[in-house]
Amino acid sequence: MSYFKDDAGNCYFLSAEDIANGGLSLLPADCVAITDEEAHAIQNPPPTPQQILAAQSAKLRGLVQLASAQKAALANRIDDIEFSIADGSSTPADETELPDRKAQSTAWYRFSSALGRVSAQAGWPVTVTWPVQPSDGMDLSVSATSPDTV
């Protein structure tokens, strides 16, 4: 297997069989043989600055959406538990859960705040130090269904 490159930077590949059958004559006259590594670099160029910006922006948007969803879900759960405590209908499990949910909420608010500073980093978007995502939170995969559909 052999790779070739012309003066315009186009890359060509010929198998040993292609070469044996006269395939070299089909290549442009200005082609020279190149290594597999050179061919790989031509065929897989590094991302452009625009591609890097798009990828990092998409990652940031996704993390911001996740943080927003976690903050909302935790706020709702905390409100529900505090209401049940206030009206006397809470369970011991509710009262045990409350401080954990408040700590999780604080962690997600800190994460969200740190995400707001990501694009202001000196290396953005090429060199980014991402904040550490909290490991705990609400299970966002649970969806509510109408009792009629169950």
Rank of each mutant, 00 (worst) to 15 (best):
V128R: 00
A72Q: 06
Q133K: 15
D87H: 07
A8C: 02
N76R: 10
F4N: 01
L140P: 09
F83S: 11
S68R: 13
G123M: 12
L53W: 11
E37F: 07
A67E: 02
S68V: 07
Y3Q: 08
S146K: 15
Q43N: 14
P49W: 01
A144C: 02
E38A: 06
L66F: 06
A54V: 01
F13P: 06
S105C: 05
C11L: 03
A39V: 13
P28W: 04
M138R: 04
L14P: 00
S15H: 05
A41H: 10
D94M: 09
D79V: 04
E17K: 11
P147L: 07
V128Q: 00
T35C: 11
A144E: 12
A144N: 13
P46L: 15
Q56E: 14
A58C: 05
H40G: 11
A69S: 13
L60G: 01
S105N: 08
D148M: 13
S143E: 10
S15G: 09
D136H: 07
A86W: 06
V118I: 05
R61G: 10
S146W: 11
Q51G: 02
Y12N: 12
S25C: 14
Q51F: 02
W130R: 11
E97G: 06
D100C: 01
S143Y: 04
G22M: 03
F13N: 09
P131K: 07
P49D: 04
A33V: 07
P47R: 12
A55D: 10
S112V: 00
C31M: 02
S90R: 02
L74G: 00
V126D: 09
I42D: 03
S2P: 00
R117P: 00
S105W: 01
A86N: 14
S90D: 11
A73Q: 03
T106Q: 14
A144V: 09
P45Q: 07
S112C: 14
A20I: 09
C11Y: 06
R117A: 03
D6K: 04
P49H: 08
V150C: 03
P99Y: 13
Y3S: 03
P49L: 03
F4Q: 02
T35G: 09
A67L: 06
K5Q: 08
S89E: 13
A103F: 11
L24A: 02
V128K: 00
E95S: 14
D30C: 05
I34N: 03
G116P: 01
I52D: 01
P46T: 15
T145V: 10
N76G: 13
R117T: 12
W124Y: 12
D136G: 05
I42G: 02
L63W: 15
G137V: 04
I85V: 11
G116N: 12
E17R: 13
N21C: 05
G88I: 04
T129A: 14
L26Y: 03
G9S: 09
S119E: 15
S89G: 14
C11T: 10
D18R: 01
A122Q: 09
F83V: 09
F83L: 15
T129L: 06
S84H: 10
Q56D: 00
A58Y: 12
C31L: 01
